[in-house]
Design a protein around this nucleic acid. Structure first.
Length: 299
DNA sequence: AATGAGCCTAGGAGTGGCCC
DNA sequence: GGGCCACTCCTAGGCTCATT
C-alpha cells in the first residue's frame, strides 16, 4: 500500500522492537507460520508503546487480559492460547524427526508510521481492512469486535469479570460467528451500483424522507446535496431511526441527501461493521481520503 | 533519562428504553 | 412516533510511579 512496513517482530523477541517506530501509524498482528492476520489497528501515539503494551498484556498464558486499555488483547490471547494448546496436543517432535516440524506458536507484529491526523489514519486503517478483505476473502479474526467462538471475553478491569475458555456445554460466543464476505469492488462512490449493491435514488435528508425508509438494519450514505460527494458512511440496526437523528444535526448548515441499503434483521453484529468498512475503504481508495465527516465529532 | 506497567479518563459511534 | 438520555462498545491519550 505504499507504506513503510517494519519487518515482522515476534512478541517474544523484545530486543527486535527497535524495528517498531515510535511514531503514530498503523500496525498488523498475526501468528508465526500463518499468513492470515489477527488484527489491523492504528494509533495516534507511539506504535512502539502500543505494541509493547499489547505484548505485555499477553505475557500470561493462564490469564486472559482485561479488555481495557487494549480491547483487542483478550481476542489475541484467546487465539494464541487455543493454538498453543492444539500444537501441544499434536505432540512434541521426536528426537529423530527432520526439520519439517513447525516451531512454537507465537504472535508477531509489523507496523508502519503514518504522518496523518486522526481522520487520515482511521481512513487508512479502513482502507487496509478493505484491501485485506478483498484479497483474503474474510476479515482479520479479531477485528470488528469478533472473538474466538469458544472463549468468553474479559470485561473492563473495574467490572472484574475475567474471560476464558467456555465449558463444553456452553453455547458458542456469537462474536465468533463467521463474518460476511467482502463486497464486490465495482463502480464509484455514489453510483447506483457501487460495490455491487443497488442504491436507491438520493433523497433530501428531511424528517419526512427518513420516516419513509423501510424498517430494518443496514447501511446508509450521506452526501452533499449540491456536489453529490459522499460526506459520511454509516450502519445502524434501524436505518430510519438513525437517519432521523442525523437529520436533526447542523452539518455546518449544509444541505445533505441520503441513500441506503436495508440488509434485514441483524443476527450477527460484526457483519454490518464489515460491510461499512468495505464502503469506507473503497471511498478511500478512490478519493485518497475518508468521507469528510467520517471520524469527526463536530456535527 | 528512557522505558515499562498500571490505572484512569475522554470521546466517537451506535443502541435501547423511558416519557410525552 | 419522536425527543431525550443513559448506556455499551471500542479505542485513544495521559498520568504516576517503578525499573532499567
Amino acid at each position: 500500500m505504499g507504506l513503510d512496513w517494519s519487518p515482522w517482530v515476534p512478541f517474544d523477541a523484545p530486543r527486535e522492537y527497535f524495528y517498531i517506530p515510535k511514531a503514530p501509524g498503523v500496525y498488523r498482528i498475526r501468528a508465526t507460520g500463518n499468513e492470515a492476520l489477527l488484527t489491523i489497528g492504528e494509533t495516534g501515539q507511539s506504535l512502539h508503546k502500543k505494541i509493547s503494551e499489547l505484548r505485555q498484556s499477553l505475557r500470561r498464558a493462564d490469564l486472559m487480559p482485561w479488555s481495557d486499555p487494549h480491547d483487542v488483547a483478550p481476542c489475541l490471547w484467546a487465539y494464541w492460547v487455543e493454538w498453543v494448546t492444539q500444537r501441544n496436543a499434536e505432540g512434541q517432535p521426536e528426537p529423530g524427526d527432520d526439520d519439517e516440524t513447525p516451531g512454537p506458536v507465537m504472535l508477531e507484529c509489523s507496523a508502519a508510521p503514518l504522518d496523518a491526523a486522526a481522520p487520515g489514519r482511521k481512513g487508512m486503517e479502513a482502507y487496509l481492512l478493505y484491501q485485506y478483505r478483498q484479497e483474503a476473502g474474510e476479515s482479520p479474526l479479531c477485528s470488528f469486535g469478533r472473538f474466538h467462538p469458544r472463549y468468553r471475553k474479559s470485561s473492563r478491569r473495574c467490572e472484574n469479570r475475567r474471560g476464558g475458555k467456555l465449558e463444553d456445554h456452553q453455547q458458542d460466543n456469537p462474536a465468533g460467528f463467521p463474518g460476511i464476505g467482502p463486497l464486490e469492488a465495482t463502480g464509484h462512490p455514489g453510483d447506483p451500483g457501487w460495490m455491487g449493491l443497488e442504491w436507491p435514488e438520493w433523497q433530501s435528508l428531511t424528517a419526512d424522507a427518513a420516516r419513509n425508509v423501510p424498517p430494518g438494519a443496514g447501511l446508509y450514505l450521506l452526501a452533499d446535496a449540491a456536489t453529490r460527494e459522499i460526506v459520511y458512511i454509516g450502519h445502524a440496526a434501524a436505518v430510519a431511526a438513525r437517519l432521523m437523528e442525523h437529520q436533526k444535526k447542523a452539518w455546518d448548515d449544509r444541505e445533505l441527501v441520503f441513500s441506503y441499503q436495508i440488509t434485514g434483521p441483524v443476527a450477527i453484529p460484526h457483519t454490518l461493521r464489515e460491510l461499512e468498512t468495505d464502503l469506507i475503504g473503497s471511498f478511500y481508495e478512490q478519493n485518497k481520503k475518508a468521507p469528510e465527516y467520517q471520524y469527526r465529532s463536530s456535527r
